[in-house]
């Protein structure tokens, strides 16, 4: 189980390029309960979650491996997940992208992404990008035919290279710029406005000294 070098550090961690191989995970509406079943969330740290990613689809009741891309030998070490529409829907649990990241996933490519999931990825410094249905289909098929296919995600040019092919992808411009300039961990940026925060607090009708006056 590989960990990203920058995953544990906090400031100015720029993310601009992810290079590696891909793991095609076909299916729409893959929810966060599938990504990390709730019983594995009974923990007070995220550290050990990687082994439980997609646990209930990867293993049968007896703990034997099912056929699943996360189990297949040919995708071992792959760091770019390619899935379909509405990936990460459901619960807001950051345990889901944390489990994927700790499994070794460094970027997510999908036709569409559930909003809270995409926000969680952004806040963790994990690029989550969108491509069209046809492009995803083509990419998944290409990777299935050649699991060793080199993939390169470049946030600067918003392009994904897969062997000789090149695609444009979409990512929210704010997520992109936070990744590129290393401000995806937003606490420090937000806190730098502490005076403005206090002023805002005092100005709200329900928090000021004479409430609602």
């Amino acid at each position: 189980m590989k960990k990203r070098a920058h995953a544990k550090e906090h400031d100015t961690q720029r993310v601009s390029r992810i290079v590696g191989t891909a793991l095609p995970l076909r299916g729409n509406d893959i929810d966060t309960d599938q990504i990390i079943p709730a019983r594995f969330m009974k923990v007070v740290t995220f550290d050990g979650l990687g082994q439980y990613a997609f646990y209930d689809v990867r293993f049968d009741e007896n703990g034997q491996e099912n056929r699943h891309p996360f189990n297949e030998r040919e995708y071992k070490g792959a760091n770019i997940l390619i899935s379909n529409s509405n990936f990460g829907c459901g619960s807001s649990r950051e345990h889901a992208p944390q489990a994927l990241m700790r499994f070794g996933i460094e970027a997510v490519v999908a036709e569409s992404l559930a909003e809270i999931f995409a926000g969680n990825c952004a806040a963790m410094g994990v690029p989550a990008v969108r491509m069209t249905r046809d492009q995803i289909e083509e990419l998944q098929t290409a990777v299935e035919a050649d699991p060793g296919l080199q993939i390169e995600i470049d946030l600067l040019s918003e392009s994904l290279k897969a062997g000789a092919r090149e695609y444009r992808f979409h990512i929210s411009s704010s997520y992109r710029s936070a990744l590129l300039n290393g401000s995806w961990d937003s606490t420090a940026v937000l806190l730098s406005q502490s005076e403005a925060i206090r002023r805002k607090g005092k100005s709200l009708p329900y928090l000021n000294e004479n409430p609602f006056k």
Partner: peptide, 19 residues
């Protein structure tokens, strides 16, 4: 609804960064 990194942000700064 927010994830844990944003909970950290709200605890620390009472704010979130959001589109």
């Amino acid at each position: 609804g927010i994830g844990t990194s944003q909970i950290r942000d709200v605890l620390a700064s009472q704010c979130i960064a959001i589109n």
